[in-house]
């Protein structure tokens, strides 16, 4: 990617650096400070929206590694989130684990279930894999509902809120900090995982599976690794979600959520850490827009128009992006950046 003019890489470390210039560092810190100062300016409402965006970002990071980098399309991401959610809910509510011990367990459990349902990926790809993951979602939810004695079945179960040394993450602001801290860490890891040996192997598999195999990339291990990492992210997100609501039900993980996570990837741009953030933020804001506009539209036109608005809008956004901007907002962002750097000479 282009650097500001006059900046040259003079070593491996510089070449690999994500933040290369002082301006980039300043912008990073300014962004982080602004982000963490949010609770000072905003009320509970905006913080709730931001927290949910944060949880989505964590989840979509996983999906991005799995789908965007390794091309193993998963449409069962909400199901894997449910695994993490219920693991941590059961550990904290029934076995009195602290949240901090339950969170890694949730991540691990989701990862392992991810590996199990990732097994078909060794033989199939594309549409077939999508169907395998769709099946995974429905089977997971069914199993949770079956275990009535443990999970409370369809009635759900109450979940304690995270706690650290007597301080309970109960207020919106405190939970916002928790989620954002994990989201930032998640972004940091996501950005770096794809720069490791495994990450490069994922990209090789995405670009051409057979060629990757010929080059010596072990498809067996790397595909399952991608599933593991992707589902670990999902598990963390799921766990954060149920502890936020302080209640776990299977309704929190509807099948369509998996689809919208993929939609976020499309809108944001596949295979780009920045794209995940763009995608999650824009689709969630679209949701908010629909919610706010709904009643106005209902008064002006008809309640039917208002209730179909959400579906049609979201469908159209994905549809239009696929046709006109298949590489997503991240690509557009890159173009804007390079345009800014090169201006007034456009080449």
């Amino acid at each position: 990617m282009g650097l500001p003019s006059g900046t040259f890489n003079q070593g491996y470390a510089q070449d690999m650096a994500i933040f290369r210039t002082r301006t980039q560092w300043v912008m990073l810190f300014a962004f982080l400070i602004l982000l963490f100062a949010c609770p000072l300016f905003f009320g509970d409402r905006i913080l709730t929206v931001l927290t949910i965006i944060g949880i989505s970002i964590i989840s979509v990071h996983g999906l991005n590694i799995l789908t965007g980098y390794c091309n193993q399309i998963s449409m069962g991401h909400a199901g894997f989130m449910a695994v993490g959610a219920y693991t941590s809910a059961l550990l904290t509510a029934k076995l009195d684990f602290s949240f901090w011990a339950a969170l890694p367990c949730a991540a691990l459990a989701a990862g392992i279930v991810g590996i199990i349902f990732g097994l078909p990926s060794l033989r199939v790809k594309g549409f077939y894999l999508i169907m395998a993951t769709v099946a995974a979602h429905f089977i997971i939810i069914w199993v949770i509902l079956q275990l009535y004695g443990v999970t409370g079945g369809a009635d759900g179960m109450a979940v304690p809120r995270p706690e650290i040394g007597g301080f309970v993450f109960k207020s919106k602001a405190s939970y916002f900090y928790l989620v954002m801290a994990i989201a930032c860490l998640g972004t940091f890891f996501a950005k770096n995982i794809v720069r490791t040996r495994a990450g490069r192997a994922f990209i090789a598999i995405r670009d051409n599976e057979l060629a990757a195999e010929v080059m010596g990339v072990n498809l067996w291990t790397y595909k399952l690794q991608a599933f593991f990492i992707g589902c670990v992210y999902a598990g963390v997100a799921g766990s954060l979600l149920v502890h936020y609501v302080a209640f776990a039900t299977t309704d929190q993980f509807p099948f369509m959520n998996s689809v919208w996570y993929l939609g976020m990837l499309i809108v944001g741009g596949m295979g780009s850490t920045m794209g995940v953030i763009f995608g999650a933020v824009s689709l969630k804001l679209l949701d908010e827009l629909v919610t706010v506009v709904g009643p106005i539209l209902a008064a002006a036109v008809s309640p039917q128009a208002a209730s179909s608005l959400g579906l049609i809008m979201r469908g159209l956004v994905i549809l239009l992006f696929l046709i006109f901007e298949p590489r997503g907002l991240a690509h557009r962002w890159q173009m804007v950046k390079s345009y800014y750097r090169l201006w007034p000479f456009s080449h």
Binding site: R45, T48, V245, D251, P254, E288, T291
Partner: peptide
């Protein structure tokens, strides 16, 4: 507000 039976939307609507 229309929550579309979606739990995540309910949370933000509730706060709003």
């Amino acid at each position: 507000r229309d929550d579309e039976l979606n739990v995540e939307k309910v949370l933000s609507i509730y706060e709003e």
